[in-house]
Simulated assay, not measured.
Amino acid sequence: MSGTVDAGRRHDGEVGGGGTGGAGGGRPFGGGGRGDASGDDVEALLRARLRLADERIETPPGLWDRIRPAGNEQGPEARSPRRWPSAAVLPRRRPYAIACAMAAAVAAVALGVWWLVRPGDVTPQPAGPPATVKITVYNSERACRTGRSLECALRLAKDPYAAYAARDNSAGRVWHGDGLAARCVVTDGQMVRDEAGITSTRWYLVTTGQGARGWLPGVRTRNTHEVPVCPEGVK
């Protein structure tokens, strides 16, 4: 920096007036004709000189323009310590904080609603066998309605569309009065005539109590319950 500092005249045995020093030819900062001025007076005089010099220092023109960072419109006297965010920054952060708080509140409400209406523990149930309808075997021959002789046995067929009496079309035997579980029925199978002359093209897909599965001709039962029609391709 440039400036003028008036540090005063150098004193050689004179402070504001005449006086002679000791044999040393004069002591600095001496005065009043005393060669041993007290240290307090010297210190006070020095402080006064320094204060005067400080007051006379002037800031060179254009100094702050040269040292101020680019884009900063405030001088050094307008700056504030960067200890905390300035008040101008806080309003810009407030909407973000409000949005975060609202999102947290919505999430908390949604979690509470889910907790209240959440489904209970669901254990998947294994697929059971399809529903069946119970039907009873009927033999039109009165003599075969008692006993379980081979002569009175009725055949279950493997294929309702094949000849009922064919040697390879047998899936098991049933007798009059046996209870069977009917799964479904086809209505366009081979026509069968019983001993009383009754005919039918209906065939029931049944399972016996012993686990045998086959097709029972409609003339071999007097079913009075509705049995669903078999899906295409069921055997």
Score class of each variant (00 low, 15 high):
Ser2Asp: 14
Ser2Cys: 05
Ser2Pro: 02
Ser2Glu: 10
Gly3Tyr: 08
Val5Ser: 08
Val5His: 07
Ala7Phe: 09
Ala7Val: 10
Arg10Phe: 07
Val15Ser: 10
Ala23Pro: 13
Arg27Asn: 11
Pro28Trp: 08
Phe29Gly: 09
Gly31His: 12
Gly32Phe: 07
Gly33Ile: 06
Asp36Val: 13
Ala37Asn: 12
Ser38Met: 08
Glu43Asn: 14
Leu45Ala: 12
Ala48Arg: 11
Leu50Gly: 08
Leu52Phe: 10
Leu52Gly: 15
Asp54Pro: 00
Thr59Asp: 14
Thr59Ser: 11
Thr59Asn: 08
Arg66Gln: 15
Arg68Phe: 02
Asn72Gln: 13
Glu73Trp: 12
Glu73Gln: 11
Glu77Tyr: 05
Ala78Ile: 02
Arg82Cys: 03
Arg82Ile: 05
Arg82Ala: 15
Trp84Asp: 12
Trp84Thr: 14
Pro85Ile: 07
Ala88Arg: 15
Ala88Gln: 12
Leu90Ala: 07
Arg93Leu: 13
Tyr96Asn: 04
Ala97Trp: 07
Ala99His: 01
Ala101Val: 02
Met102Asp: 04
Met102His: 02
Ala104Thr: 01
Ala104Asp: 05
Val106Ala: 14
Ala107Trp: 00
Leu111Ala: 15
Leu111Phe: 07
Leu111Ser: 08
Val113Met: 05
Asp121Phe: 02
Val122Arg: 15
Thr123Phe: 02
Pro126Met: 07
Gly128Asn: 01
Pro129Asp: 13
Pro129Arg: 11
Lys134Met: 09
Ile135Met: 04
Thr136Lys: 11
Thr136Cys: 04
Val137Ser: 02
Tyr138Lys: 03
Ser140Met: 01
Glu141Arg: 13
Glu141Leu: 09
Glu141Met: 10
Arg145Pro: 04
Gly147Leu: 05
Arg148Thr: 13
Cys152Arg: 01
Ala162Ser: 10
Ala166Ser: 14
Arg167Ala: 15
Arg167Leu: 13
Arg167Lys: 14
Asn169Ser: 00
Asn169Pro: 00
Ala171Met: 05
Gly172Phe: 02
Gly172Glu: 06
Val174Gly: 00
Val174Trp: 02
His176Pro: 00
Asp178Tyr: 02
Ala181Leu: 02
Arg183Phe: 01
Val186Cys: 01
Val186Glu: 06
Thr187Val: 09
Gly189Glu: 00
Gln190Ile: 08
Ala196Thr: 13
Gly197Cys: 07
Ser200Arg: 06
Ser200Trp: 05
Gly211Ser: 06
Arg213Asn: 08
Arg213His: 03
Arg213Glu: 15
Leu216His: 07
Leu216Thr: 03
Pro217Val: 01
Arg220Met: 12
Thr221Gln: 06
Val227Ser: 01
Gly233His: 03
Val234Cys: 02
Lys235Asp: 09
